[in-house]
């Protein structure tokens, strides 16, 4: 697992030349290229390192704020939270306590945030995974919120955009988690029936049941640069097969090369690209028509 961008108080680490009054978190250090970046510049750049292009992980709320038109997001099904179907206890810790901690830490009730919004004026249904909530593992609530969002998007005539990220299945809900795979695939039939676009954006990291279900049956599959995507995690593969994994294995670039995804889209371009893909798929173009003949004439 790659580290998140860490905020550092540079002043406290001995760069006195920058002055003693620098507030905490003014500078960030890119975990990949080690470049010190002015935090505000980094955030303006959608949490992408301006030097090496490293895409830092985002919370679901940060993600939504970057993608949708301002004030356009209306959340759906925020009242759903996990039950404890197995009465699961591991190492003396009951699952509900683990959930409560995750809720406290992340500020979310579950690992998936769903709702309606517009992107450059295009109405969409959205589902965004929160990796900070138990590694965005898919349990009953994740599956149910996903299914409701897909179906509601279909009823409201919206394209369905999903930011998929996950560490795998929610072990604590056992076989109920496993059976969220077919549930999510069934739910997107409602979009297919109405010929509505279903687009997934695979973001770092995306593994296990999420990759093996809704994420990879979409009409278009996009990914962020450098995102790690697969079924089995690299550690499992190395343990089971004793194979040395090549550099770049399971990266978005690797998957593009192997024919598994449609395109890699850098984060700052995502908003425009998503709106563009939806307009292309639904044959809805806002600009006035351009005749091919006229364009050739004017090109001369």
């Amino acid at each position: 697992m790659r580290p998140r961008f860490r905020r550092r108080n540079v002043a406290s680490e001995g760069t006195e030349s920058l002055g003693p009054s620098i507030p905490d978190g003014l500078w960030s250090k890119c975990p990949r290229c080690r470049e010190l970046i002015y935090t505000r510049e980094f955030e303006r750049n959608h949490s992408v390192c301006p030097r090496c292009g490293y895409h830092a992980r985002l919370t679901a709320r940060q993600r939504i704020a970057l993608i949708v038109d301002p004030e356009s997001f209306v959340e759906w099904d925020a009242g759903l939270s996990p039950a404890d179907p197995l009465q699961f206890v591991a190492l003396g810790e009951p699952y509900p306590r683990k959930v409560a901690e995750a809720q406290e830490r992340s500020g979310e009730r579950e690992a998936l945030v769903t709702g309606a919004a517009t992107i450059l004026g295009v109405p969409v249904g959205l589902a965004v995974a929160e990796f900070g909530f138990l590694g965005a593992s898919m349990g009953s609530v994740f599956g149910e919120k996903f299914a409701r969002a897909a179906e509601r998007a279909a009823v409201e005539d919206r394209a369905f955009i999903v930011f998929a990220s996950s560490g795998g299945a929610r072990m604590h809900e056992g076989v109920f988690s496993l059976f969220q795979l077919p549930k999510t695939i069934v739910a997107v039939e409602s979009l297919s029936e109405r010929r509505l676009p279903f687009i997934t954006v695979l973001v770092d990291p995306c593994y296990g049941g999420v990759t093996a279900s809704f994420a990879t049956v979409a009409d278009l599959i996009l990914a962020e640069p450098g995102a790690m995507i697969g079924f089995a995690g690299p550690r499992v593969i190395e343990q089971v097969t004793r194979q040395k994994l090549p550099a770049g294995f399971q990266s978005a670039e690797f998957l593009l090369q192997h024919g598994m995804i449609d395109a890699i889209v850098p984060r700052p371009r995502l908003r425009e690209e998503l709106a563009h893909y939806i307009r292309l798929l639904t044959n809805q173009h806002s600009a006035s028509p351009v005749s091919f003949v006229t364009r050739q004439e004017s090109d001369r």
Partner: peptide, 21 residues
Amino acid sequence: ADPGLESEERGQAWAISSCLQ
């Protein structure tokens, strides 16, 4: 499902989701 390197290269997750569908 097989968790090997070649299975990942050939899209194990894609194969499973398509089979489910």
